[in-house]
Design a protein around this nucleic acid. Structure first.
Length: 257
DNA sequence: ATGGCTTAGGTGCTAAGA
């Protein structure tokens, strides 16, 4: 089984690339973030015509999440229950017996921004939600754009980034609180692979991608029954080359039967 | 190297991203 997360930075613009990527990379579930589409404008017909099921939770201009699968998408749930949030950032569903929680974690912008405490509170609510889901699902994956760099080596310049937004201790504590529920950051199981991507996002500006000045902020976290069967987790750097590409790449975790 | 890019909304620019 293969499960992927991808911040597509507008599905309106990116749909051709997403469908092309899915054809070349048959995965069992693809969680999307930043679809930036209202539900009325979501390209359901095009995705279904390509042979997929799809569930989506959108809003105008910003945010928006979705799950695409060649299999049935069951027990779909939107948002974090009992957490007031106008922003559409979470979609959960069950695919082939695996509970999938797709997340677009708030960016936070800066340590002195109002968006920073929103991010921290949002992550606290996500932890409680995941803890609750774990009482019902043994095979569970939390994946998405976390906007958190887990370790110093996951940024291109630790001297510049450590302590700042994405790399601050309170953000990392919240990622660790999720992991402490019994999850594993599957990427770290395969650090030594020769073809390993280092990052999952590169700024559009300044030629960052071609200088490999990136961050690892898109993650796939799994419960033990999945972790034990995980044989790979990597980013598809090829997806960043070309015109009209997202600034993030797809990150896929692979599980044997 | 905090933006030199890319998107949405709307039609010239601002807001936001990470």
């Amino acid at each position: 089984m293969k499960i992927t997360t991808w911040n597509v930075n507008s599905l309106k613009v990116r749909l051709p690339h997403v469908l092309e990527w899915l054809e070349a990379n048959p995965v069992d579930a693809l969680a999307l973030q930043e679809t930036k589409l209202t539900n009325e404008n979501f390209p359901r017909e095009e995705i279904e015509a390509a042979g997929f099921s799809v569930a989506f939770n959108g809003q105008k201009t910003y945010n928006g999440v979705a799950i695409i699968s060649p299999h049935a998408i069951e027990d779909v749930q939107f948002d974090i229950p009992n957490f007031e949030d106008e922003q559409k950032r979470v979609i959960a569903a069950t695919v082939q017996g695996v509970r999938i929680i797709g997340c677009y974690v708030p960016n936070g912008q800066a340590l002195d921004s109002d968006k920073y405490p929103y991010k921290l509170g949002w992550l606290d609510a996500l932890r409680d939600y995941v803890a609750d889901e774990l009482t019902r699902h043994e095979q569970l994956v939390v994946l998405g754009d976390f906007n958190i760099v887990p370790r110093p080596e996951d940024s291109y310049n630790p001297a510049k980034w450590e302590g700042d937004i994405f790399c601050s201790p309170p953000e990392r504590q919240r990622l660790q609180a999720l992991i402490d529920l019994g999850l594993t950051d599957t990427w770290t199981m395969f650090d030594e692979r020769e073809d390993k991507a280092r990052f999952t996002w590169w700024d559009y500006r300044g030629g960052s991608f071609h200088k490999n000045l990136g961050l690892r902020i898109d993650h796939v976290l799994t419960t033990a029954p999945l972790t034990e069967r995980c044989t790979d987790c990597n980013g598809d750097v090829k997806a960043r080359y070309g015109k009209q590409r997202s600034d993030h790449i797809p990150v896929t975790a692979v599980f044997r039967k």
